[in-house]
Every structure is written in structure tokens, then in C-alpha cells.
């Protein structure tokens, strides 16, 4: 019985949160990796573009809520998502046209693109704060839980409860769908293959008659969809606050690099590696230890390896270790 309780506690406090956080990171890192693979720079505006996508979705959600539109028990935000994606696509395509295209034409060094992306980051940051403000925004509705901790306890008679939030369920399902769809697109459609070809060998792709501007445009649209979805899922799961999206930049970058920049499969693996490390290192293991260990060995403290404030340190340390020992990442990425 104690063993079962320990498993349930592990699932409740570690596995489920880490899987849903990992899914969010993976979707975000897919965007970073695609931009890196096709446009060949690290996009610092990624986090704030995520905030932009989430913001538009929130605004549409509020509007729908005011009209009484609902898809209970699912959150209305899912219905608003396509609008968010459309607006974000428009936004990233505009920034590409106004900002990045020029640097592509003059074949600027990657670092110049990064600088420009910092400019875009400032602007996005300003726009989001200007429109929706810097504070916390609530927009989640519908049923909060698929499974409540209390119901689980009553059902199983265990001491530990297992709570499964709707947002976590949606996140996991969405991540599976998106990854499947994206890989199908990249591996089985002409456009997807041309994107891979362009990322692999730009000169040869040009020689083969692949239109670079089209590849870039399709990439931005996919990235817009990915970041909007990741942003909304994160907002539903935790809460929407512009600054937290900027802070997501570090774990997202870490996921993409750990997996191997430019490699979509790596981005997904990286997302989960980072998420699981963050959650396991900052979780107070006492609860589980109490079930598993004999009384004499019970830890006196919380048995928490690091305080939750250090979660960035976890992604950072993993990042550094991977960079030092395997600079191309776990899956082979580009190391230009």
C-alpha cells in the first residue's frame, strides 16, 4: 500500500507536471529549432512572441466569453486559438518583411540577426504590455480537473490523491498531435521536404530550384502556430504574465540546444530532459521517501535538492554540460 501511495504521489507531483511542462517546452523549442534550421539564428524574440500569441488568444477568449460562447468542459481558449495563430502569423510575417528580410538579402552575419531579434523582442514586449498590461491575466474556464485528488482517493482508497488538470490533459494531447502533424508535414509533403533540404544545404536547395522566400514564409507560419499554442497552453496551465514568457526563453533555448539545434526530434527530447530535471531537482522528495523508507531512515528536511528558485540553474547546468561534452546536442544538430 505504501508503495502504491508512493507511486501515486510521484505521478501527481513529478510525472504529470513534468510531462505537461515538458510538452510546453518541446513545442516552444520546436519553434526555436525551426528558425535556427531555416533562418540560421537564435531568435531572442521567441518568448515575447509567445506572449503576443497568447495575448491575442486571451483577448478573443474574453470576447467569446462575453458573447456566451463556450465549449464546456473544454476551455474557450481552444476555440480562440485559431484567431491567435492567424494574428501571430501576420505579426511574424510582418516582422520578417520589415526586419529580417533585409539582413537575408545582404547576407548578414547570424549575430546581426540576433541583435535584430532583440529589437523585435523589445517591441513585442512593449506591445504586449501596452495592450494587456504587465499583470497576471486569467482566461481559463471550463472544467478545471479531469480527475480531482479527492475523487481519486475515494475511488481507490489510497491516502495519496492524483489530480489531473484539464489543462495538463489538453497540453499532453496537443503536444502529441502537433508533433505527429509536424513530422508528417516535414517528412511526407513536398513543402516540408523542401524545408528540410533548405535547412540541410542551402546552396544545393537553391540550385534545385527551391524558393527560399517561400520556405522562410512557411517556416514563420509554422513557428507562429507553435508559439501561439505553446503560449496558450502554458497560460492555461500556469497563468499568463508577460514577464514569465520572457523567462521561458532560457529553458526553451536550453531544450533546443540540448537536443541539438536545428533538429526537431532533438527539440522534443530536449524539452522533456529539461522539464524532468527541473521538476525532479526542485521537488521536495520527503513525501515519497516517507512511504518508501523505514521510519528510521526518514529524512528530517524536505529532501529537496534545490529550492524552486533555482530551476533556471538546472536548465543552465544541463546546457553547459551538454555544450562541453557534446556540442551538437544529444541528437545531431547543426554545429556551424
Amino acid at each position: 500500500m505504501d508503495f502504491l501511495n508512493a507511486i501515486v504521489a510521484l505521478a501527481n507531483f513529478v510525472l504529470i507536471p513534468a510531462i505537461s511542462y515538458g510538452s510546453q517546452l518541446a513545442i516552444g523549442a520546436l519553434g526555436v529549432t525551426l528558425i535556427y534550421g531555416i533562418l540560421r539564428f537564435s531568435n531572442f524574440a521567441h518568448g515575447d512572441s509567445m506572449a503576443f500569441g497568447a495575448m491575442v488568444t486571451i483577448l478573443v477568449t474574453w470576447w467569446m466569453q462575453s458573447l456566451g460562447v463556450s465549449i464546456h468542459p473544454l476551455p474557450t481558449a481552444l476555440l480562440a486559438l485559431p484567431f491567435g495563430i492567424a494574428a501571430t502569423s501576420l505579426m511574424v510575417l510582418t516582422t520578417d518583411r520589415v526586419v529580417y528580410r533585409f539582413y537575408r538579402r545582404v547576407k548578414a552575419k547570424p549575430i546581426v540577426f540576433v541583435m535584430a531579434s532583440i529589437g523585435v523582442m523589445f517591441i513585442m514586449n512593449g506591445i504586449v504590455r501596452f495592450i494587456i498590461g504587465p499583470g497576471d491575466q486569467r482566461f481559463a474556464d471550463g472544467a478545471r480537473f479531469i480527475m480531482k485528488a479527492r475523487d481519486f482517493k475515494e475511488m481507490t482508497g489510497l491516502r495519496e490523491g492524483l489530480a489531473f488538470k484539464t489543462s495538463q490533459g489538453i497540453t499532453i494531447i496537443a503536444a502529441v498531435l502537433i508533433v505527429a502533424l509536424l513530422f508528417w508535414f516535414l517528412n511526407h509533403t513536398r513543402t516540408g521536404k523542401s524545408m528540410r533540404a533548405f535547412s540541410d544545404n542551402e546552396d544545393l536547395a537553391l540550385l534545385s530550384g527551391i524558393n527560399p522566400e517561400r520556405v522562410v514564409m512557411v517556416t514563420w507560419i509554422i513557428v507562429a502556430a507553435l508559439i501561439t499554442i505553446a503560449g496558450v497552453l502554458y497560460g492555461l496551465d500556469k497563468s499568463f504574465k508577460p514577464f514569465t514568457y520572457f523567462q521561458l526563453l532560457l529553458p526553451i533555448f536550453a531544450s533546443a540546444i540540448v537536443g541539438g539545434l536545428g533538429n526537431p526530434l532533438g527539440a522534443i527530447a530536449g524539452g522533456f530532459v529539461i522539464a524532468f530535471s527541473e521538476v525532479t531537482v526542485t521537488y521536495a522528495w520527503k513525501k515519497i521517501a516517507v512511504y518508501l523508507l523505514p521510519d528510521a531512515l526518514e529524512p528530517s528536511g524536505l529532501a529537496q535538492l534545490l529550492s524552486t528558485d533555482y530551476k533556471f540553474a538546472v536548465s543552465f547546468v544541463i546546457l553547459i554540460v551538454v555544450l562541453l561534452f557534446k556540442p551538437t546536442g544529444l541528437f545531431k544538430g547543426q554545429s556551424v
Binding site: 513536398r190 521536404k193 523542401s194 528540410r196 533540404a197 544545393l204 534545385s208 527551391i210
Partner: peptide, 15 residues
């Protein structure tokens, strides 16, 4: 295209 299969290389050749 080193990361793509032989067949995909040919497909891209005929893009």
C-alpha cells in the same frame, strides 16, 4: 542533402 534519404535527395533534385 546529408540528413535526407537517398530517395528524398532525388525528389529534391526534381523539385
Amino acid at each position: 542533402f546529408g540528413s535526407m534519404s537517398v530517395e528524398e535527395n532525388l525528389e529534391m533534385g526534381g523539385f
